[in-house]
Amino acid sequence: MTEIQCTRPILGFAAFSGTGKTTLLEKLIPVLTESGLNIAMIKHAHHNFDIDKPGKDSYRLRKAGASQMLISSRFRHALITETPDKEPSLTELVQRLDLSSIDLVLVEGCKTEILPKIELRRDVLGKEWLHKSDSNFIAVACDTPELETSLPILNINNVEDIARFIHEWIKAHDSIENN
């Protein structure tokens, strides 16, 4: 796997199923956007999904054989691309984003990809630590108050602290990019 290339800071949130990745991001994104950041979000799903509704024109046209279906209105647009032969890489997905108005790309899932990531972990699940076998983790957000790691430890239940960490990480990322 190669490192994900992106002209904007890109940050992953990785954890085992049931940890609460989506729940945390649902609370974190408003805090980040209220602070002035424009966010792009990529969510990886391990299962088949459909965002189009049966019976709607776009669904009918896609099911008729269109390999790409772009639906647009005054309020939003969505491109649905059929990928029956292979799952698109994270790099391919990032290339589909309009980064011109984005300050930060967040990625949910993709825990094995090479990109900066925050590990989310809840002790009750009893899963192993991901950061111990992957040097791409930049912090751990967990409910374990004492943890032996050199990484910053964030409280998974404190969205404001996580947002502060992300802002500091973006500043450091931007200063590296500008040098």
Rank of each mutant, 00 (worst) to 15 (best):
M1D: 13
I4C: 01
I4M: 04
Q5T: 10
P9V: 02
L11H: 02
F13Q: 06
A15V: 06
S17A: 12
S17K: 10
S17Q: 10
T19E: 07
G20M: 04
K21G: 06
T22S: 13
T23W: 07
L25Y: 02
L25E: 01
L28Y: 00
I29H: 00
P30F: 05
L32K: 00
G36I: 09
G36K: 08
L37K: 03
L37F: 07
N38A: 08
M41Q: 11
K43T: 15
H44V: 09
H44C: 01
A45F: 08
H47K: 09
N48I: 11
F49S: 09
F49E: 06
K53C: 02
P54K: 14
G55Y: 05
K56E: 07
Y59I: 05
R62P: 04
A64E: 11
A64Q: 14
S67N: 12
Q68M: 12
M69Q: 11
S72C: 11
S73P: 12
R74Y: 11
F75S: 12
F75K: 13
R76M: 09
R76V: 01
T81H: 14
E82Y: 14
E82P: 11
T83L: 07
P84G: 10
K86Q: 13
K86Y: 11
E87H: 12
E87Y: 08
L90N: 00
T91Q: 14
Q95C: 09
D98F: 00
L99F: 02
I102A: 00
I102N: 01
V105C: 03
V107I: 06
T112P: 02
I118G: 04
V124T: 14
G126K: 07
G126L: 11
E128S: 15
E128G: 14
W129P: 00
W129E: 12
S133R: 13
S133Y: 08
D134L: 08
N136I: 03
F137Q: 03
F137D: 02
A139E: 03
V140T: 06
E146K: 15
T149I: 11
S150A: 15
L151H: 10
P152S: 05
L154D: 04
L154G: 06
E160M: 04
E160W: 04
D161G: 11
R164T: 13
R164M: 08
R164Y: 07
R164E: 14
F165T: 04
H167S: 13
I170A: 02
I170L: 05
K171G: 13
H173R: 06
H173A: 09
H173Q: 11
S175I: 13
I176K: 07
N178V: 12
N178I: 10
N179L: 12
N179T: 08
N179S: 11
N179G: 13
N179W: 05
